[in-house]
């Protein structure tokens, strides 16, 4: 059997160009394009297993959104977005069932936990008092790390959740 080197080289080059970006990195163009089309702007990504939470802006209004990466569609989050509240940061558990967020409402900055299974948004107290800024949930959604401003310095609190 004769090996046709030019054809083989062209095939390998083509596969590389189609398949992989640099270093084995592959852009998921379908989902990325869908994310861009569905909002004017999107920030603060947080990944679960097959879930992406983020803050999406449409018509000048920012909302927390959770996208099911299996089909690229946002899932309903009844009660998490309120007309008088501005989300600041967000984090999702691995299974997409819990979302922690920091939001600004009525001039106050609040730390919140949303449980998707029951559609319930709860305020979490920051103790000692401080202003929350960033959140990170662990995979189970039972441990929360929060960046908090207290007396001009940044601390990180760990909160065990029921």
């Amino acid at each position: 059997m004769t090996i046709q080197w030019p054809r083989l080289a062209a095939l390998l080059l083509g596969l590389c160009l189609i398949g992989c970006g640099p270093s084995g990195l592959r852009p998921e163009r379908g989902i990325s394009s869908a994310l861009q089309r569905s909002s004017d702007s999107r920030r603060w990504p947080s990944m679960g297993n097959r879930w992406l939470a983020s803050i999406a802006s449409r018509n000048g209004r920012e909302r927390v959104e959770l996208v099911d990466l299996r089909n690229g569609q946002p899932v309903p989050l009844p009660g998490i977005n309120q007309a008088d509240a501005q989300p600041i940061s967000v984090s999702v558990s691995a299974d997409g069932n819990r979302i922690a967020l920091v939001r600004s409402r009525d001039g106050r900055t609040e730390l919140m936990l949303y449980r998707r299974g029951v559609g319930l948004l709860q305020r979490l107290p920051v103790e000692p008092a401080g202003v929350p800024r960033e959140v990170s949930l662990d995979g189970s959604g039972r441990l929360l790390a929060v960046q908090v401003s207290r007396q001009g310095r940044w601390d990180v609190d760990l909160i065990r959740l029921p």
């Binding site: 994310l35 861009q36 999107r42 920030r43 603060w44 990504p45 947080s46 983020s54």
Partner: peptide, 17 residues
């Protein structure tokens, strides 16, 4: 998931690792 800036807008790109 990576947040980037594109023509003055924040966007989120998803990469398969």
């Amino acid at each position: 998931a990576v947040q980037t800036a594109d023509r003055g807008r924040w966007q989120v790109e998803l990469l398969d690792l």
